[in-house]
Amino acid sequence: MVLKRDIKELAAPEFDLAVSLFLPIRTVPDEKEKNRIRLKKLMKLAEEKAKAGDRYRASIFDEAWRRLEEAVLFEGPETKGAAIFFSEKSFHVLRLPVRVGEEVSVADRYHIAPLLPALEPQGIFYVAALSLKESALFRCDKSGCVRIDKLHMPSFGAIRGQTELPADVGFHSSSRGTAGTPGIQHHSQGDSPEDYHQVQIQQYAHGVANAVDSYLAGIHAPLVALGDPNLLGYFRKFSQHPGLMRESVAKAYHGMSDAELFSQVWPVVEPVLVRPLNQALERLSAGFERGDDTVCMLESEIVQMARSGRVETLLLAEEDRPSPGTLGPNNKGTPEEEAVSMLRNVMARQTLVHDGDIFVVPQERLPEEGMAGAILRY
């Protein structure tokens, strides 16, 4: 997912030349070269638009070409789309966990509207299920959780096998014990077997955290940790994932079904994912039914109110798009499509610049047919 602060940083500045490119990513090996071909076509189209609008600067495009050669765009199992932004002052690449249509914008500000469906929270979250017998990562939404099988997790058994000392090395017996029972073991270097076991658990938790962080690199969706309290503590210490939630679930994962896992973690993430959206929709519908001035459903008025900082929450209808991979005839959107896209962009940008919230919802969830609805601050 994309963080609100990331989009806000993209939305605020004004440039002499601001280029925004969006393209769907196909991760099937045979399609990777086609990804690069589509990207080159989008860059060529951006150059044409810049020249037509008297904004073209060869040095900016040359630098963007160079940096795109170095960028990692087409890797990662969760990558379904990519967004590229560059200007005379900045260069940004975002790998997106949602599919986007091909789109090119050349203006004085970055075009952020296509990023909004990837804005967290939109319903996707992850669960790190921790156990000394086996750990796993799950991708979840409000309907349930699915285990990610491609992720390679470390094995606690392998760590024990690599680091366990032989029973007769480093320990000595303080007594003979009873018949058939070994005496109490003491480590000659000062560490008890329990201390050594904790070191092994730390190594294992560190390895699991690294595996999860690597898989979720660039994905800012919420991450919930579930497992034995001791293992949870070490995992939280080592994980650097920005979406790791403060609240964990201290339940043994081993033997837990996917349905049971979901029932344990959903109460933790529901307040973050679902309730804010439902509350916003309820407020919008109630204000619309009353006909009062706490809400607005007219796009032209929403733009003006967003510019003046009055929009507290913007609810945008999901955008109708052509099939991913096409811009329409001659790789260009129609004037009507470009006008709608620009209007969505202005509403979203001005809302974010003034610290408002944005949700993207199916059109039928809005009180009446239209592009957007807004809840006003005053």
Rank of each mutant, 00 (worst) to 15 (best):
M1G: 15
K4D: 09
R5S: 14
P13H: 01
P13I: 03
F15I: 08
V19K: 00
S20Q: 11
K32E: 10
K34I: 07
R38A: 02
L39H: 10
K40D: 06
L42C: 09
E47D: 10
E48M: 08
K49L: 09
A50G: 11
K51H: 00
K51Y: 00
Y56P: 08
A58M: 07
A64P: 15
E70T: 15
E75C: 11
G76W: 12
K80A: 09
A83N: 04
E88A: 05
F91G: 06
P97Y: 10
A113H: 05
P117F: 12
P121V: 11
L132G: 12
R139Q: 12
G144L: 12
D149W: 09
I159F: 05
E164A: 13
G170Y: 11
S174N: 03
H186D: 04
H187P: 15
E194N: 12
E194A: 13
E194Y: 05
V199R: 12
I201Y: 07
A205Q: 05
A205P: 08
G207S: 08
Y215H: 14
H220C: 13
H220L: 02
V224G: 07
D228G: 00
P229M: 07
Y234A: 08
Y234I: 02
R236W: 15
S239N: 06
L244R: 04
L244F: 05
Y253E: 07
Y253I: 04
M256Y: 14
S257A: 07
L261D: 08
F262T: 03
V268A: 05
S285K: 13
E289V: 07
D293S: 11
L298F: 10
L298H: 10
S300R: 08
G309E: 02
V311T: 01
T313Y: 13
S323F: 12
L327V: 05
K332A: 00
G333L: 11
T334A: 04
P335H: 06
E336N: 04
E336P: 03
E337S: 12
V340D: 01
V340Y: 02
M342R: 15
H354I: 05
V360R: 12
P362I: 08
Q363E: 11
R365D: 14
P367E: 11
P367D: 11
M371V: 14
I375P: 01
R377A: 03
